[in-house]
Every structure is written in structure tokens, then in C-alpha cells.
Amino acid sequence: MRRDRPRVLLVEFARPDPAAVALGRVLRDAGAEVVHAGPLDTAEQIVRTAEQEDPDAVGVLGAGPPSGLAEALGDVPVFTAETAAEAVERLTGGRSHTAEAPSDRAR
């Protein structure tokens, strides 16, 4: 099944990260469909959620991606908040005008 928009799963690993909402907005504004799974504690939970949601990419915030996650997800790329601008460009085919902008709350 071919999608019109890339689907991104956002996960807060090990601890809540308020940047997840802002990153979700940036991805959405860039044309991606965003599924925010919220805080998950283990790599297994992330993999199970990814199997259910069938994302084109998985964003891990809060703490770095757990070891072995990229291998467990196979061809689904994993990105972090530090590489979010690159992920937006790769997923949507262009740069987002809001990728580097602070969240609404910071303005």
C-alpha cells in the first residue's frame, strides 16, 4: 500500500520529553502523518508499537535510541531530535520552514 504522506512514529524513550509535541508539529507541518506513542520504557515496546502502526520512520526522543532498536526495526529508519531536520527533509522530500524554529511556547 502506497501512502500519500510519510507516517512517522514519535516515541519518548525512558523519560518524557516536551520537545516531542513541537517535533510532531514540525513533521505535521512538513506534510507527514504523525503518531505520538508517548513514553515507552523498552526497545520491545517500541518495536511492538512500530509493528502496529507501520511507520515509515521512528523518532526517539528523551534518551538515545536503545541498542539494537535499528536492527529490530529492519528497514525503518530511526532518528533522534538532533537529526530531526534531516529526517524531515528525507521523509518529505524538502526542507521544512519550521524545522529550526522554536516551539510556540518559546516565542
Rank of each mutant, 00 (worst) to 15 (best):
V35P: 05
V35N: 04
V35L: 14
V35M: 10
H36C: 04
H36K: 02
H36Y: 07
H36N: 05
A37C: 08
G38S: 12
G38Y: 11
G38P: 11
P39C: 11
P39S: 09
L40S: 06
L40I: 08
L40M: 13
D41Y: 12
D41M: 11
D41Q: 09
D41H: 12
D41K: 04
T42H: 07
T42K: 13
A43D: 06
A43I: 03
A43T: 13
A43S: 14
E44A: 15
E44C: 08
E44T: 13
E44N: 05
Q45V: 00
Q45I: 03
Q45T: 06
I46F: 10
I46R: 10
I46Q: 14
I46E: 12
I46N: 08
I46D: 13
V47I: 07
V47N: 13
V47E: 06
V47M: 07
V47P: 08
V47F: 01
V47W: 03
V47Q: 06
V47S: 04
R48K: 06
R48F: 04
R48P: 00
R48Y: 01
T49E: 13
T49I: 02
T49C: 13
T49L: 00
A50K: 00
A50H: 03
E51Y: 00
E51W: 01
E51G: 01
E51S: 02
Q52E: 11
Q52G: 02
D54G: 01
D54A: 05
D54T: 01
P55Y: 04
P55E: 03
P55I: 03
P55D: 11
D56F: 03
D56P: 05
D56I: 04
A57M: 06
V58T: 06
V58A: 05
V58R: 07
V58G: 10
G59C: 08
G59P: 11
G59A: 12
G59K: 07
V60W: 11
V60F: 07
V60H: 08
V60N: 09
L61Q: 09
L61Y: 15
L61A: 15
L61P: 06
G62F: 13
G62M: 14
G62L: 14
G62S: 13
G62N: 14
G62C: 14
G64K: 11
G64C: 06
G64P: 04
G64Q: 12
G64R: 15
G64L: 12
P65W: 04
P65Q: 07
P66Y: 08
P66L: 09
S67Q: 14
S67N: 08
S67Y: 08
G68Q: 09
G68L: 10
